[in-house]
């Protein structure tokens, strides 16, 4: 049984305590909601970049470049953005669980709602142009862009495997031109069929064969498309030191 003096002892302890003001709890709730919504926005932005990268991938040319569909998907899947999306979805989940009524919803409902809202806003952000803007901005500023953020660029950065991407900086004659390889920051002399018309400063992708350290024989020449535009802008072909690190070149 309870001690008869329980109430008195309790009152003695409570005497020095104060009721915590309502604003303290409101602030805590706002903090949880604010970070939840912020994470949801970041997750949606990640989704908009994923949507942008997937939409503008060269689905029509993978067979021409000697890859099966599954290995091509595996190679160019935007893992970085998928991880980013998952990371923010986990934060949203924990924020949701910490709201006053978040515990009432089971894991699968929160995850499903989270995915749906991220997709909805992700598509909206994509159509506003955020997906492209983020990809362009990171391409210009982030050093490991082609290796980590947009692996589709890295896929084309394998001269020894017959794939090359870069910008045309000089046309030597109707069968050859000079290309800046944006991944390795290096100049290449490209030999090609005279029927292909090449324009200066045009970002292009090539398949073919590396026949010397700086000579590449092109078989297929394709426009670079929209992906990695920031990277092309960063290494626009001017003031380029062949084979050297060009971190300072804009």
């Amino acid at each position: 049984m309870l001690n008869e003096k329980f109430d008195q002892e309790l009152l003695g302890k409570i005497k020095d305590k104060k009721i915590i003001p309502r604003w303290h709890f409101l602030f805590k709730d706002c903090f949880v909601w604010f970070f939840g919504i912020l994470s949801l926005i970041f997750g949606s932005l990640s989704f908009s970049v994923i949507f942008y990268l997937v939409k503008h991938n060269e689905w029509d040319v993978y067979s021409q470049i000697g890859e099966s569909f599954s290995s091509f998907v595996f190679l160019v899947l935007p893992y970085f953005w998928i991880l980013f999306l998952v990371f923010f979805m986990i934060i949203v989940y924990f924020n949701m669980k910490n709201t006053k009524k978040g515990y009432r919803y089971p894991l699968h409902v929160i995850v499903f709602m989270n995915i749906m809202v991220s997709m909805l806003f992700g598509v909206l952000f994509f159509y506003i142009g955020f997906g492209q803007a983020i990809d362009d901005a990171l391409g210009e500023r982030v050093p490991f862009y082609s290796e980590v953020i947009n692996r589709r660029m890295n896929f084309w950065c394998q001269a020894e495997k017959g794939k090359l991407v870069g910008t045309v900086i000089e046309i030597k004659n109707e069968n050859s031109f000079v290309l800046i390889d944006v991944c390795h920051k290096k100049e290449w002399i490209i030999e090609h069929d005279a029927s292909v018309k090449i324009k200066i400063e045009k970002p292009i992708r090539l398949t073919g064969e590396m026949i010397a350290d700086d000579i590449f024989k092109a078989e297929i020449i394709l426009p670079a498309g929209r992906l990695g535009r920031g990277l092309f802008r960063k290494y626009n072909g001017r003031n380029f030191n062949n084979g050297k690190d060009c971190e300072n070149i804009k």
């Binding site: 309870l2 409570i14 305590k17 009721i19 915590i20």
Partner: peptide
């Protein structure tokens, strides 16, 4: 009883958090 005292102290302090 000690736990119960703690409970009532928490209840008192957090009354504004009651939904």
């Amino acid at each position: 009883e000690d736990i119960l005292q703690d409970v009532f102290i928490k209840v008192y302090q957090n009354l504004n958090d009651f939904d």
